[in-house]
Each structure stands twice: as structure tokens, then as C-alpha cells.
Amino acid sequence: MNNYLPLSIISLGILAFATLMLVIAPGIEMARPEPPAGLQPYTVEEQRGRDAYVSMGCLYCHSQQPRAPEQAPDGERGWGRPSVSADYFYDSPHQLGTMRTGPDLLNVGARLPSESWHLTHLYQPRAIFEWSIMPAYPFLFEVKAEAEEGDVVVALPPEFAPAEGVVVASQEALDLTAYLLSLDRTYPAPQDGIRDDGYRPRGDAE
């Protein structure tokens, strides 16, 4: 270990090898020309909502990757079937997540399909779940003396409603809700779907 050049070349070679194994090879394996049947691209409104989801950092508490029943009871909780790589065809940046301070959201649109529920929950999560530690997003709403035409009014129990006037959803809150409602991967998983099957009981391979 007296020479700089060999040290550099071997170090970079090892990193290149790791990149091949962790990024390039799985990338080739997962590459698909087409999305699975049943997966729709995001609409303009849903995509704006997705951008809001990314910018608010929802990712840091909510995963979007239900696990297999062999590993965890995600399906029993209504979070959906185990996801496969093709389910994320239209997703960039990916929002797979690493925390479940809150529940998994990959199928929240199928599980909780009410716009009104989501608006109330975003305005004040504790209006629905007293135990919730999710942040409230009052800045996505506006308090008005009375609703104008086209306004979407948020339904609130009296103790969370403003003393006077009504709470009206901003366009960003509506977009975000549209994105949450679009989260629905309940179509059957593609036959060649790729996921980590490392928890499948032995002898039970496909």
C-alpha cells in the first residue's frame, strides 16, 4: 500500500462492481416496455397532487410498498396485495418509503375512497383519530366567512371548526386528495411481477 494509482483503481473498480450488482443488473431485470394492464397514468391534477405529496415529505412517515402475507399482515390491514416493481411504472421520484409512523398508502384510494374524509383528515387528523400524530396541514386550507361558488367546504366536528366561517380546501389540498384517491393498485399483479419473495415458505415457490 505504497502507491496511489493502484489504490485508486482497485477502489473504483470495487465501486463499479457494486453498482453493477445493485443498480444495473436489477435495473435490466425490472425494465419493462409497458405498464401492467389496470395501471393508469396520473392525470394532470393527480400529478400536481403527487408533487405536493413529495414536497410536503409525506414519504418520511408513509411507505408505499405492501409486504407479502408470509412476512407481515399488511393485506389484513387493508393495505393491498404485495406490490411488484411494475406497479411503479409511472412513479418518479419513487416514494417507496422506509417508515410506517403512519400506514402504508399504496392503496389508500381503494381503502378510503372519500374525498371529504381526506380533506378533513388533512386539515386536522385528530378530528378523525384522537390518537393520531400526523401533522395538521391548515395552510392548505382557507377560512372564509362563507363559501363561494365552487368552493369545497371541509366537514369538521364543532370542536375543530373555526369559531366563525367555514374551512375551504385550496387547489393544492384538492390536488393532493386527488392523488391519494388515485393510489389504487388493486388490479391483479402481472404474472411476471418482480418482488422480494425471500419470505415465501420453503417448497412453495411458483
Binding site: I14, L15, L22, P26, Q65, Q71, Y88, I194, D196
Partner: peptide
């Protein structure tokens, strides 16, 4: 460190929508 540490990253995606072999590798 160079050989092993460089290939551990996918343990953050265990049980996720990645090929089984790459999770196992990590």
C-alpha cells in the same frame, strides 16, 4: 469494507418490489 460495504444498500428494500436475489445479496 470496500468489498462488502459497497453492496449492502438494498437491505433498505427487503420485502419490497425488488428482485429477491438483490435483497439477499445485500
Amino acid at each position: 469494507l470496500a468489498l462488502f460495504y459497497s453492496q449492502v444498500g438494498i437491505h433498505h428494500l427487503i420485502g419490497g418490489p425488488v428482485p429477491t436475489w438483490v435483497a439477499t445479496l445485500s
